[in-house]
Computed example of a mutant assay.
Amino acid sequence: MQLSKSKNIGIGSEKEKKFGFNTIFKSKMTAILIATAALWILFTMLTDGNFLTTRNLSNLFRQMSITGVLAIGMCFVIILGEIDLSAGSTLGLLGGIAAILNVWFGFSAIPTVVITLILGVIMGAWNGYWIAVKNVPSFIVTLGSMLIFRGILIGITGGNTVAPLSSDFKAIGQAYLPTALGYVLVVLAIAGSAYLVLNNRKNKIKYNIDVKPMILDVFTIAGIGIVSLALVVILNDYQGFPIPAFIMLLIALILGFVATKTVFGRRMYGIGGNRDAARLSGINVKKHIIVIYSILGLLCGVAGILLTTRLNAGSVSAGQSAEMDAIAACVIGGASLAGGSGTVIGALVGALVMATIDNGMSMMNTPTFWQYIVKGLILLIAVWMDIASKNKK
């Protein structure tokens, strides 16, 4: 046993060789990151360098935060093997309610946010109830909710834009973190990634599981540090780290921990992998479905608040097709529509891809219909690649 463990520790051991650089470049996540870098280069060339200006990158991450928050919640639903077509309408309705509370009724930021998030949980639980308790397919339930919520939004606003917001509420979507705090986040990101990577390595060694060479873990930590520092330096060069992006990363950190380090997360993957086996093993499948749809409803509330405060208005068109961007982000990031697989970090990377396409094509003054066509093709190709990879296995 001791000999077996020692093989895992050394950098050049036989068990570690299978984790060489060829394996890295064959991974789906690496391919997505390379494709994203290629998109950035392409848009930089096509916009005469304007894409990589600090102002545009700050705007890009602000745009990404809305899709990213929505994609995190959608990822949980997709891992279950379900879907939610009402997320965009839920986002729009909750954003509209937040605007009404703030503009028409004079609520300050805190009560507006609290009420909006509570309503988001209720709306998510509504979907979960029909799916889990009444056994109506999630496609039908959320399709109906999409129409219901959009109709309610149009009805309560009278089809009008609700604006302008109060300064304290508007700050949620438009303010920036202090410059010094951005560098504190870099230190925390490096320390946190080092702990997670090294702790994961330690646990694998403890249970005699093959590990990657130590040099690759060091490269991972260093890469996270370099990217985090570069990101903060770039954003600080404009006005600072956007609060919406900070909220998105905070949510990703919390729910990423829930998905990978808790019993709830393991059961979620188990339900998505084999629902009957999960039920027979004693997992309360109905409860998990309702809770996860409630989480998505909560995140729809967050995304709705971010969008409304970013635009300084509540609009009847807010959130249209947002669920498609979220689903595409999840699939691009490695989630399978068959359930049982997907990660929060993958959903964020997918959201970055979708935001890059939106931002870059908008800077090129590309007609809106082409943006829909391109995103639709990307979703189709991503699903096809997922199915093809599973068929090979």
Rank of each mutant, 00 (worst) to 15 (best):
L198N: 13
A71M: 12
N50D: 15
M364G: 01
A382N: 02
T36G: 14
L42K: 03
V263D: 12
L185K: 08
L249P: 02
A87E: 01
G173C: 08
M45C: 13
T116A: 06
K390P: 10
A335W: 07
I11C: 01
Q371C: 03
G225H: 10
A132M: 02
R266T: 06
V121E: 07
T366I: 11
S6P: 00
L229T: 06
I234H: 07
A222N: 05
I154Y: 15
R150N: 09
A189E: 08
S317Q: 07
V232A: 02
K134F: 02
G225R: 06
I115Q: 01
L101Q: 04
F43R: 13
D168H: 09
I118M: 04
L185D: 02
L91W: 03
A87Q: 07
G95P: 05
M1W: 08
L46H: 05
N203G: 06
L147A: 13
T30P: 06
A175K: 07
K202I: 10
L94S: 08
G128D: 04
I292Y: 02
G192D: 12
A245I: 03
P178E: 11
F51K: 09
A180M: 11
K26N: 14
G273Q: 03
K212Y: 02
I243M: 08
G225P: 00
V383L: 10
Y195I: 14
A252N: 04
T23R: 10
V211S: 13
T54M: 14
Q371V: 09
G333D: 04
G10W: 12
V184S: 11
L255M: 11
L298I: 08
Y269V: 14
A347V: 09
I83C: 06
K18L: 13
T309Y: 00
I32E: 15
T262D: 01
S321K: 11
V374P: 06
V113R: 00
L57G: 02
T356H: 10
F61Q: 10
A322R: 08
K17T: 13
I66D: 00
L85P: 06
I387L: 13
S89N: 12
N160R: 13
L177C: 12
A338I: 06
G151Y: 06
G350Y: 01
Y269D: 02
Q2V: 10
S341N: 10
V103M: 01
V141C: 03
G96Q: 03
L143F: 12
I122T: 04
I32C: 15
F107L: 14
G376S: 05
G81V: 10
A98Y: 09
